[in-house]
């Protein structure tokens, strides 16, 4: 007992909370609660017995977890060196942090079990300082943060979205965020698309970003990387895909009523496939003139995938310039 004063007070306070051991709190808790709930139901004259309630609980939990158990976990399949490096970085950081985090779970569990009142283990009410322990709990996390800091510095530079993604000739793409679709322009090829980004495998590409509406965030989960697109400004992201694949990308920054549908298709194709696509676009597509673009932007709606054989050159810069006006005089 701590001190007799406290003990005495406790005797005199009639409804002092009863001492429940952590045994009940941890493993057997659910069963114990079930007892209590069942008892309270019985008291009210309801027939629901313990087994009935337990069954009900199982059905509820089961019903909720069945679809989950059946579902595949479609974690993003990384494609390309950027996404792969980012995933590895996440894993390395997690491993480093496990050094300080796992002991928390172990110690919390151990201490709660060992030092619960009913167990009457060693009791040191005045123990409140230990230099070696203090050094360890400041020192070890500091070392880990230094290691993590090294990772952050080097990887932030090596995975800079503004740096070209590996060797090879860069494919230039320009992307304009609008309400609520993406317009992609290929200045080198002369073709344009809406809501579809087609890129060749194993070749770096650079997407210059701007917005013809509110702030958007350009993101292709499978390829890694996310950068804001803002009106009157030009940002960029460099990516690279390794192998042909069908993927998706979207705007991640809430932009209004059509935001949920602001997704685009990403097709990574082989070098030959890319040529074929360009020729097909050249032959089959319409024209993305200034007027056509203006009309497209004006309809605030999502749009189906469309391909254009050509677009008015300078369109991207004009969209940026539109917002770089001087104040009224």
């Amino acid at each position: 007992m701590t001190n007799p004063f406290a003990a005495r007070l406790r005797r005199n306070a009639p409804a002092w909370p009863p001492d429940a051991g952590p045994a009940a709190n941890l493993a057997g808790f659910a069963v114990k609660r079930m007892h209590a709930v069942a008892a309270s139901f019985r008291k009210r004259g309801e027939p629901a017995g313990r087994s009935g309630l337990a069954a009900l609980a199982f059905v509820l939990v089961g019903a909720a977890s069945l679809p989950v158990a059946a579902a595949p976990i479609p974690l993003i399949q990384t494609n390309g060196p950027i996404a792969l490096e980012q995933a590895r970085l996440m894993r390395d950081a997690l491993l480093l942090m496990a050094i300080v985090v796992l002991p928390v779970f172990v110690l919390a569990g151990t201490f709660v079990w060992r030092y619960r009142r009913s167990r009457q283990a060693t009791y040191r009410p005045d123990w409140s300082f230990s230099l070696p322990l203090e050094l360890a709990i400041w020192g070890i996390p500091t070392c880990i943060v230094i290691a993590l800091g090294f990772l952050v510095w080097t990887r932030t530079h090596s995975l800079d979205p503004y740096a070209q993604a590996g060797p090879g000739s860069v494919l230039e793409v320009q992307a304009i965020a609008t309400d609520w679709k993406w317009v992609f322009l290929y200045p080198g090829l002369g073709v344009a698309t809406v809501n579809e980004l087609v890129v060749p495998a194993d070749r770096p590409f650079r997407i210059a970003l701007t917005s013809d509406t509110v702030m958007n965030a350009f993101f292709i989960p499978g390829l890694g990387g996310q950068i804001f697109a803002m009106a009157g400004m030009r940002t960029q992201i460099n990516l690279r895909a390794t192998s042909p694949a069908e993927m998706w990308g979207r705007n991640m920054q809430f932009s209004g009523n059509g935001f949920y549908g602001q997704e685009f298709r990403v097709r990574v194709v082989g070098a030959q496939g890319f040529d074929a696509w360009r020729q097909h676009a050249r032959a089959a597509g319409g024209q993305l003139t200034r007027a056509a673009y203006g009309a497209l932007v004006k309809q605030q709606a999502t749009a189906p995938v469309t391909t254009y054989a050509r677009f008015d050159p300078g369109l991207f810069d004009e969209v940026i310039a539109k917002y770089r006006t001087e104040p009224h005089r």
Binding site: A20, A108, F111, P141, T156
Partner: peptide, 30 residues
């Protein structure tokens, strides 16, 4: 990014200080 991680150090220290407060205590679970 690094400054953000530096904050994790004092926060982690607090967690361990609380854990060692449990150590050789006489825990009540109210």
């Amino acid at each position: 990014g690094i400054m953000t991680m530096v904050i994790a150090v004092p926060t982690g220290v607090k967690v361990y200080d609380w854990l060692f407060t449990l150590y050789r205590g006489r825990l009540r679970f109210d």
